[in-house]
Write a protein that binds this DNA or RNA. Structure first.
Lengths: 125, 125
DNA sequence: CCGAATCCGTAACGATACTG
DNA sequence: CAGTATCGTTACGGATTCGG
């Protein structure tokens, strides 16, 4: 009867936080959102060139995911050659401040974190 | 000469944001941080039971990762049976407000996001 | 030019059994 | 109690090829 009452977590499907982190936590989503925040509107290949190291496939997949969540708006201009533009939706923009806050935190703490990792490695030598 | 100047991103190694997201973006880190934020100090098995669906292996791996980044402090009591406690470091706590902000955003937008996904599915029927 | 489709290697993840 | 060790599966991501 003395056991602590600890929150039961881990019902992943119904956890909103996890649903969000699952998306922005992947390899490219956050980068794309921050990029679109800077540039307002970008074509597919502009994003591709800007990120540089992303493959076409992952760019397609990631943009679809962001579009399906209503964070990014996709506009197709039916012309030859085709032209597709991407921009943040209001919902996407509403997420932005939190991402920027995280970015700022990352910049402030990165060097210390790297130092911690190096120290941790040494301890397990 | 008319080409837009778009930020070059994607040099992942040196990007602080990605370094952070890589860690808290995995399957369990954020959940553990939020749990420790609520409970202050927890033993290994308490975390294990609380999350429920995490395997011992992944709990070990995730805690090590958080410890190596200096976000979580690990305290071993050399006794039989062993006792190990985990708690957030100041650095871990400094990350907390941003995670909570994300949580709040997630709670507010989850239903709309789910609706968007459903709508998106229908469009591609 | 903007993707879709396919193949394939790796790494993340999970289940289980075992140890000090 | 708090992990390690091993194995099998699955999902992610990259390279390449094809299509409208």
């Amino acid at each position: 009867m003395n056991e602590k009452k600890i929150k039961k977590m881990g019902n992943i499907e119904n956890c909103p936080v996890r649903n969000v982190i699952d998306r922005i936590g992947d390899k490219w989503s956050m980068l794309i959102i921050l990029l679109l925040a800077d540039e307002q509107v970008l074509r597919f290949n502009e994003i591709h060139k800007s990120i540089g190291t992303i493959s076409q496939k992952m760019l397609t997949v990631t943009l679809k995911s962001l579009e399906s969540d209503g964070l990014v708006k996709r506009t197709v201009y039916p012309q030859i050659p085709p032209k597709v533009e991407y921009e943040l939706t209001p919902r996407g923009k509403s997420l932005l401040p939190h991402l920027l806050a995280l970015t700022e935190w990352a910049n402030k703490n990165m060097s210390n974190i790297k130092a911690s990792r190096a120290q941790y490695e040494k301890s397990n030598a």
